[in-house]
């Protein structure tokens, strides 16, 4: 690899959603009736408070939607609960790891 050559340079793009993340984002948007496009959710922004601005009632709704769609059960006791809900990306990773189908 040669520095300063005319090779195409990788530009830092805003982080994009994977297809799994997009699926989870759509589920969240529809189950919470959010008025944002699923595609526009920053996968690394916090879901609660500052990011999407979700609250504890939403957490219950999301848990319900994930249970139905993926048979993934969220639990408070889960030590990593804060990390799971940290962002769309972490939530999707948790689902991918635990989904039953």
């Amino acid at each position: 690899m040669s520095l300063g050559s005319s090779e195409p340079q990788t530009v830092a793009l805003p982080s994009r959603l994977t297809s799994e993340e997009l699926e989870v984002a759509r589920l969240i948007v529809s189950s919470l009736s959010l008025e944002v496009a699923a595609e526009e959710i920053d996968p690394e922004a916090p879901l609660f408070n500052q990011g999407l601005g979700l609250d504890s009632i939403d957490a219950l709704e999301i848990a319900l939607a994930l249970s139905k769609a993926y048979d993934v059960k969220l639990r408070s006791d889960d030590e990593r609960n804060h990390r799971i809900f940290a962002s769309l990306r972490s939530l999707t990773a948790h689902i991918e790891k635990h989904r039953a189908r």
């Binding site: 504890s56 957490a59 219950l60 848990a63 319900l64 249970s67 059960k73 969220l74 639990r75 408070s76 006791d77």
Partner: peptide
């Protein structure tokens, strides 16, 4: 006394 927020918490 213990977690009782999500349905799975309550059922368990």
């Amino acid at each position: 006394a213990g977690a009782s927020f999500f349905p799975s918490d309550v059922l368990d």
